[in-house]
Amino acid sequence: MAQQVQKPQIDPKQLRRSLLIWGAVAALLIVVWQVGWGTIWREGLIRPFLNAMIFLYAYLGQSFVLAITVFTIVLRLITAPLHLKQVRASRRMQEIQPKLQELQKRYKGDKERLVQEQQKLYKEQGVNPVGGCLPTLVQFPIWIGLYQSINSILAHTPMELMALGKNVYTGFAAVANIVPLQSHFLWLDLARPDPTPILPILVGGTMWLQQKMMVQPGGGDPQQAGMTQTMQIMMPLMFGYFTTQFSAGLALYFVVSNVIGIAMQWAMERYDKMNGEAEAQTSATEPKSKGKVNYGKKQRGKAKR
């Protein structure tokens, strides 16, 4: 019996998945090695971003504010699945906090069993403990690429203009008509930081609100609640401060992006609420003897299987 417990069991499904992941990572590394990270970064991110924004600028009344707003909306729509996944993962983690704490109490002296039970719980609930942060990490390159693209588009120095000239697609004839881009909007020179505190406050404020809506109070764990609260204050403050250093164009992107995030969050909450009410009504009409647990869609599917 003891041997059976110690013998590692390999799940063929998991093995296939692992092999697939490592194969993809290896393929990616080979591509990076062959093509060069700089080329991939430039051709895969900077040039598409830059040309898309210039295209929008050219055909949306040569307004950079309008261009960046539309671009942000498109970008948020593309990354919406990631965002939703992040929010849902964060919520699920919040929801199972009491159960996790219960497990900690129950298996206080048995570390190995605790880990096993936690993994089991995660699997049952369809929760990935790092699922909440991965989407954010995936968005990092997008932010950095966007930052570089905006700096080139709002070229203010010969170096920046040169970067723009090299990255514009050759067939994009409309560029000649719009370079250098009109970078003035209200009191702002979008190529330079906002001299007033307005944009930093807007960036910090919208970021705070978005985080407030996204992160629920932390599941009874005071340490976690403290951490969440610190983050909710520190992040907006940090971004607010760095807005005083970044070009106003990038700050504008953050504001628009945050506002769209807030709207998405609100819409999602509404949807979940309505969905929850509908499910509650359905379960109220069903016979109680079945004793079904109110899983989400994914869990329901798993339960059936």
Binding site: Q104, L114, V115, C133
Partner: peptide, 10 residues
């Protein structure tokens, strides 16, 4: 007791 992987870590 080892601290369980928690939401705060990631």
């Amino acid at each position: 007791l080892q601290r369980a992987p928690r939401f705060g870590i990631p």
